[in-house]
Amino acid sequence: MPEMSKMKKPDVKVVLLGDMNVGKTSLLHRYTERKFKDTISTVGGAFYLKQWGPYNISIWDTAGREQFHGLGSMYCRGAAAVILTYDVTNWQSLAELEERFLSLTDTANHDCIYAVVGNKADLTDPKAQLSRDSDVAPEDRTECEEDRTEPEVLSACPTPPASPASLSGVMLHKQVAPEDAAAFYGRILRYKGLDEKSSLPAEKMCFETSAKTGYNVDALFEALFDLVLPSILRKRNENQESPTVDLEECRGTSSKRSRTSCC
């Protein structure tokens, strides 16, 4: 087990916010484990550490239940990016972001980046259903092909079979249009007192994803990681300018000086 002093600390923090059952945990599992999992509601919050090139990024998954609402501002403290997540088939889940969750971001960094993400796009968009193999790693895909005994199976190996609605070709009604998400993003900028002209445009910060099929999940996280890179570099420069003091080393130096002065 590595010593605590040698363990790497996260360079920046990314936080997921949103109502319960919008798929925040499933999005994280899809990105970090390359597969879809049926999950239970998150209690409080959960922490994931992602190695992104030479950098370490902590990703915080938060609970959407009302009883854990007060913890959200604590998890957002010092965040470099916040992913505000809703369900494209549930208009209320978008409304909840503005009514309950946006104020929790007051503790985030002043230059925090905000992404508005509509999950469960596979239920409304045929294009999102067809991305089932897109985010599966090549080695996983090879293993799946070797284990597959029935060529007509529709889903990729790590991803469970599609829902009956998806298999039958019946699409659910999309209650939140991309224009609605873009309008909400504009209200986020105004709430934060940011100039819309100098801020990142809505078309770059609004995503529709599917944790089930992997549609746009990589694009979401990789885009955010690229955008928080300046924060990472600035934080590292600040740490170099103000290095942590090693108390043990100071004690050793102090004792040596004391002995020298006594002789």
Rank of each mutant, 00 (worst) to 15 (best):
I59G: 00
T209L: 15
D195C: 01
G186N: 14
E152D: 14
V217L: 11
G252Y: 01
V82N: 01
N237I: 04
W91M: 06
R141C: 08
L71R: 05
F47V: 10
P178I: 04
A128H: 00
C250F: 12
Y185A: 15
P158E: 14
T142W: 04
R65L: 08
M1Y: 12
T62E: 08
T142H: 01
T42I: 08
D38R: 15
S93K: 07
K204E: 02
P164G: 14
A115I: 13
A177T: 07
N21H: 12
E145M: 07
E222H: 03
L123H: 00
L123G: 01
S168G: 13
L172K: 13
L104C: 11
K9D: 04
R251S: 07
S168I: 08
E66G: 12
S73P: 02
T209S: 13
E143P: 01
S103E: 07
D106S: 08
A80G: 11
D135Y: 00
D111F: 14
A115H: 04
E196L: 15
Q175L: 14
Y191C: 07
K50W: 07
E248Y: 01
F68P: 08
E145P: 00
S198F: 14
M20Y: 05
P178L: 02
P151V: 07
L28N: 05
K235T: 08
F225R: 03
Y75H: 05
K256Q: 13
A181W: 03
I113G: 06
T260Y: 15
F207C: 12
C157R: 01
K6R: 05
D11S: 15
Y215H: 07
T149M: 03
A183T: 14
R65N: 06
T209D: 12
L229P: 05
K127H: 10
N90G: 03
I113D: 02
R257V: 15
Y191D: 03
H173W: 11
A183L: 14
C250G: 12
L172T: 15
L227F: 10
M74E: 06
V88W: 01
T85E: 05
L194W: 14
P10C: 13
N216L: 07
T149V: 07
K6F: 09
D135S: 01
D11N: 12
A202N: 08
L71T: 06
G45Y: 10
H173P: 04
D106V: 07
L167K: 03
E222G: 04
D133S: 04
T142P: 01
L172H: 08
R148T: 05
E208N: 08
K35G: 09
T159H: 00
L27C: 10
E241Q: 11
A80Q: 10
E96W: 15
F36V: 00
M1N: 09
Q67V: 15
K197Y: 11
T213Y: 00
V245C: 15
S73R: 15
P151I: 13
L200F: 11
T260S: 14
S41G: 08
F101D: 09
D246Y: 09
G53A: 08
D19F: 08
L84E: 13
K212S: 10
P2I: 06
L130I: 02
L102V: 06
S93G: 11
E99V: 04
S58R: 01
I232D: 00
D122W: 04
G45K: 03
S134W: 00
H69I: 09
T107S: 14
F184L: 12
R257C: 04
